[in-house]
């Protein structure tokens, strides 16, 4: 195939994808209702995948989850290449930056970052070694380490 063919396909696919992610309202030729349905489906699948990968965070946010995850999607219209674990990590970090991350979510973030590293190739890999600390107010503390032969060890105060 000539590069022209690949470039044409790339352009058309990028146009469709940006419309599905709410970034392009000028998509020609497509059935607008189908595009709206597909866009809503993509967003719904993304949110459900975050809930599945981050159950403690979703539960801790409770009724605020919908509004907060909506804000995350607005700020990051395209999901990351490495899936819902990484998507939820960005969500949790965004909440932490606004001091809106509940303690249970903080612990889940700590657990995920202790165990996983996210590669530039869009794949996650297990860490062999790791150490993480979280402190909350009113005073709460969690320390976790991970090492071969030891597994994961946690200290939480209050226990």
């Amino acid at each position: 195939m000539t590069e022209g063919g690949r470039a044409r396909l790339a352009r058309r696919q990028a146009e469709l994808l940006s419309a599905l992610l709410g970034q392009n309202s000028d998509l020609s030729g497509f059935n607008a209702r189908q595009v709206r349905t597909a866009a809503a489906s993509l967003q719904g699948k993304r949110v459900r995948a975050i809930v599945r990968a981050w159950p403690r965070l979703a539960a801790a946010l409770g009724p605020d989850f919908g509004c907060e995850v909506g804000r995350h999607l607005d700020e990051h219209p395209s999901p990351p290449a490495d899936g819902a674990l990484s998507d939820g990590q960005a969500f949790a970090r965004g909440l932490a930056a606004r001091a809106c991350l509940p303690w249970e979510g903080r612990l889940e973030l700590l657990a995920v970052e202790l165990r996983w590293r996210f590669g530039e190739d869009g794949r996650r890999r297990q860490r062999r070694f790791g150490a993480r600390l979280a402190v909350g107010r009113p005073f709460r503390l969690a320390v976790a380490v991970r090492a071969p032969g030891v597994g994961e060890r946690w200290l939480r105060l209050p226990p």
Binding site: K45, A49, A81
Partner: peptide
């Protein structure tokens, strides 16, 4: 396809 223009779709298109 699942990505285009450096952007991920998060699903099969």
């Amino acid at each position: 396809f699942v990505r285009a223009g450096g952007v991920e779709a998060g699903h099969l298109l």
